[in-house]
Design a protein around this nucleic acid. Structure first.
Length: 294
DNA sequence: GTCCAGGATTCAG
DNA sequence: CTGAATCATGGA
């Protein structure tokens, strides 16, 4: 088996650091699905057709990649310039003790700027599944349909490969009823290779509508793709955990997802999606108290 | 064996 | 339009 042609190690300078207690939630907290903690304590993951490794060092965070010239790409992925960190100041944590607690639990947590194709494929797998199983489905898809990158790693499969995949191969990926969603969406997007770039010019409401025209994409998945894949930070995905958080910690019992989405965007403002990620993480890990918010 | 999952779609009323 | 049933699979 061919080996990963690693570059040398490079420093990764972040305006706002991601401390050690946040890394697991940052890279394995349900917004991305292809990072893993290695036996040596480093993080290893695939973005696009590139394998990356991250490791702490005495001089700071370091990374290397399976291809050269990835510095700009990785800096963008982790919002190295700190645009989101600056937005945190505008969230209502001064008056919202629930949010304040969630922010305190995961210092430095941010919305990764992932390729839209990967977010869409990942969340097409997400319906009615736990994060562990989403990871497994995506790993299977990459293994069977993605380009080999060395040492057993595989690139994300292209929509073309997904559209042409035999049913027997999709069956091995344990997608369940989501296989039809994935192949249906692939068959649409393979004819629009520039879809992400073209749709990126749409307003957020128009983008959400376009996304929901794809098979297997409803309100929640569209909201996640807009947030994680198109950097629409005002997007406020409402999943089972957010429903629970809003019900228990904010007293919004019985509210429907669409109502909670509206509430979130009004209450949290232009960076509602960022707030959502903190609340999601805290709730999912059972660390969100029941103190009331105003 | 039972229950349920970062929901979407289809169907009944 | 709203709410319920259905969907395929595997981990807990």
């Amino acid at each position: 088996m061919k080996r990963v042609p690693w570059t040398s190690w490079h420093p990764l300078a972040l305006k706002y650091a991601i401390p050690s207690e946040t890394w697991a939630e940052q890279l394995d907290g349900g917004q991305c699905f292809r990072w893993s903690l290695t036996s040596t304590g480093d993080w290893e993951g695939v973005v696009g057709n590139v394998v990356y490794q991250l490791r702490p060092a005495p001089t700071g965070l370091q990374w290397r990649a399976s291809q050269p010239d990835q510095a700009t790409r990785l800096q963008d992925y982790f919002d190295a310039v700190g645009a989101q960190g600056d937005l945190l100041a505008n969230l209502p944590w001064r008056s919202d003790t629930v949010l304040a607690e969630a922010l305190r639990l995961y210092p430095g947590l941010r919305i990764l700027r992932q390729p839209a194709d990967e977010v869409l494929l990942g969340f097409l797998c997400s319906s009615n599944k736990r994060i562990l199983q989403i990871r497994q489905m995506v790993a299977h898809l990459a293994q069977h349909l993605g380009e080999p990158l060395g040492d057993g790693h595989h690139a994300w499969p292209t929509w073309s490969a997904l559209a042409q995949a035999p049913a027997s191969v999709l069956k091995q990926c344990a997608l369940g009823y989501r296989a039809a969603y994935i192949q249906g969406t692939a068959q649409v997007l393979v004819r629009q290779p520039q879809w992400a770039q073209e749709w990126s010019t749409l307003s957020t409401p128009a983008l959400l509508e376009r996304l929901q025209s794809l098979p297997g994409v409803g309100p929640k998945v569209a909201s996640c793709v807009a947030l994680f894949g198109f950097a629409r930070l005002e997007s406020f995905p409402v999943d089972t955990w957010v429903v629970q958080a809003m019900s228990e910690a904010y007293g919004l019992k019985g509210w429907k997802p669409a109502q909670l989405e509206k509430f979130g965007q009004v209450h949290f403002g232009p960076a509602a999606g960022l707030a959502q990620q903190y609340l999601f993480s805290a709730m999912r890990q059972g660390r969100l108290g029941q103190s009331s918010a105003t």
